[in-house]
Design a protein around this nucleic acid. Structure first.
Lengths: 203, 203
DNA sequence: GCCCTTAAGTAGTCGCTGTCAACAATGTAT
DNA sequence: ATACATTGTTGACAGCGACTACTTAAGGGC
């Protein structure tokens, strides 16, 4: 467009470039105003070019949110320990990975949970989001089978897990977990309560 | 401005009217784009009039967010039961009131936790937000004194409480608590786990 | 090797927004 | 009565999302 003189008329892989650029922008700062024109500028194309690949801004954001959920799920899967000794050892690394994902990608994480306002887009987005829930379900199910977890309706336990982790992540992103109020390791403390709530007292 | 012919030049109480109008707009629909000019239109003043009372849009939103936190705190205080028999009876009504506040005012609740991105505004906003945390602290402290709650660092228990409730509220707002996945009463189920994690097993 | 359809880029425009500056009307203190 | 501060109004500006019309390149059939 302006800087590269010999750039060809057609970008060639603009769709991917737009997504990549947008992800970069999200990573930069959480106070940032996400703008379609800025994405185009950084990608070196005209302001209307992205419309050839996405019907509107919301569609691009939804796509990015889906990628976010996929990455989060991967992070969680990667964080699973193979041979956990205790319930606490099983839950802690996953929870830490979850919260870390949120605090390291605050704008992306926030987007993931606010891009689904449109009904039909929200459907597809929620599918991906619920894949995260499945990670919790799976872990807890194994715990119940082994006997380290109380016999309770597993969806309820998974809801508690997701609610607590998601909530702590959000609070962390919003800077509400101030040490003077909430202690120096609020996540670990909260996990203690969660583990004691999930764990089988007979063990 | 246009509809009322005999309206005086000066509104008289525009600051309050702007806030009230904005709250109405937030209440209407969560997909709504909040616009300063639309607020002015509905309040029947010119598009620049609100600037005489708020330096910019963010300042108005921050003010509204503070009101939201105050109202939430009032809701929680009002929901406290006087003579709870069990820990569950003590926690449930407050938690229900919290989540109900969020699901009944989704746009407001979301705003409350996203208006604090500016550093200095965020400070004041976080003060109000932490007042909500204090409600949890107070309740749990009494529980520990009575003996219905495990002796653990109380900030950690309060963090678990807030994280779980805040998380469940957010998930509910986002429509992620679908019954097929998460059961028909996910909040109650999650509260079971929370109560079992907080509660003193000796009782 | 040419042509023609079509995908993928461009520029230009529209209505809308947030914000600011200049001006007008009102209330208030002296 | 008059000067000043407050609180309105109008008009402007740049930037945004979205649309249309135009241009450029790529590829396939003949």
């Amino acid at each position: 467009m302006q800087d590269a003189p010999n750039r060809p008329y057609h970008h060639g892989d603009l769709r991917r470039a737009v997504i990549e650029t947008a992800l970069d922008m999200l990573r930069e700062e959480k106070g940032w105003q996400f703008t379609l024109r800025e994405v185009a500028r950084r990608a070196g194309v005209s302001h209307a070019a992205p419309y050839k690949h996405f019907p509107d801004k919301a569609a691009l954001l939804a796509e990015i949110a889906m990628i976010g959920f996929d990455r989060l799920r991967e992070s969680l899967s990667a964080a699973k320990s193979e041979a956990p000794k205790t319930l606490r050892d099983e839950i802690t690394p996953i929870a830490r990975a979850y919260v870390a994902f949120g605090t390291e990608n605050p704008a992306l994480y926030r987007l993931m949970f606010s891009a689904g306002e449109d009904k039909v887009v929200g459907m597809h987005l929620n599918e991906r989001a619920l894949a995260v829930f499945d990670v919790a379900l799976e872990t807890l199910r194994r715990g119940q089978a082994v006997g380290s977890i109380r016999k309770r309706p597993i969806e309820g336990q998974a809801a508690a897990w997701w609610g607590l982790i998601h909530g702590m992540t959000m609070l962390a992103i919003d800077g509400l977990l101030v040490p003077e109020k909430v202690g120096s390791a609020p996540l670990d403390a909260a996990l203690s309560t969660l583990v004691e709530g999930l764990g089988n007292p007979a063990t």
